[in-house]
Simulated assay, not measured.
Amino acid sequence: MNTPALFDISPLVSAEAPIFPGDEPYALRWTARLGPDCPVNLSALTLSPHIGAHADAPLHYADGAASIDAVELDAYLGPCRVIHAIGCGPLIGIEQLRHAESGLPPRVLLRSCARADTVWNPAFSAFAPEALTWLAERGVRLVGIDTPSVDPADSKTLEAHQVLRRHDLRVLENLVLDAVPEGDYELIALPLKLAGACASPVRAVLRAL
């Protein structure tokens, strides 16, 4: 029996990983090292929970909303469709989604880049708010994107995030879909149970059906 192909759609988390200006970069330090008096290596981390592939919690864009430890996990696991919108420009609109409308599963990931950025690029593609509404009306419960945010980098109103809030959609950002053909997969991208946090890194993978 052939093992289904597994696509790792998570970027490397490192000190060089691109982050929003002012966000906390990844840093690792050693608190213990193997030696005559120590049987293990132990490290400690500091980082923004929005680094690399990550899941935003509703708390990120709404005071009093659920933190990532309180979010139900079922949206992050199950049938998923990857839709290509490469070269779509600043915003992914409904017109980039219509060709993949038939039989949409509850999870949709959008590939907007020919190659995911490895340095900070504020001119990334984001979602038009009406495109997220269109997906929610078709039963989608989770959306993902291969850029740092569903909203443009300079947005002060976060209209796309507010659509997520109104429709109770979950979201994944900073995915790497460079090697993933358009089509249907199984998504596995569980957030960590971080008490009170506004987001969590995920190790996001797609398994071919």
Rank of each mutant, 00 (worst) to 15 (best):
V171K: 03
A70T: 08
Q96W: 05
L45H: 14
L206A: 00
L77F: 14
G87Q: 10
L175A: 08
H54K: 11
L59R: 07
D37V: 06
E101D: 14
I9Q: 11
I9F: 06
P152M: 03
V82I: 03
T157F: 04
L194W: 13
N41M: 09
S10D: 00
H60K: 14
D184C: 13
G144L: 07
G89Q: 04
L132Q: 08
P129V: 02
R203D: 03
L192F: 05
V176G: 00
I145K: 08
D63A: 14
D117P: 04
W134G: 03
V119H: 11
P122L: 04
P201A: 02
L158C: 05
I86R: 15
R170A: 07
A160L: 05
P106W: 08
R111Y: 08
R203N: 07
S67H: 13
L172W: 06
D69M: 03
V205R: 15
A100W: 11
P18G: 08
L77N: 10
N174G: 12
G35D: 06
A179T: 10
G78K: 01
P39I: 03
E159K: 08
A15S: 12
P105Y: 12
H99A: 14
A17G: 05
V171P: 00
N2G: 00
S200V: 05
A17Q: 11
V82R: 08
L209R: 15
A15Q: 11
A114H: 13
C38W: 14
P18E: 08
L187S: 03
I51N: 01
D184S: 11
S102W: 07
G93F: 01
P39G: 04
V143L: 09
C113Q: 15
E101S: 07
A100L: 12
Q96L: 05
L206E: 04
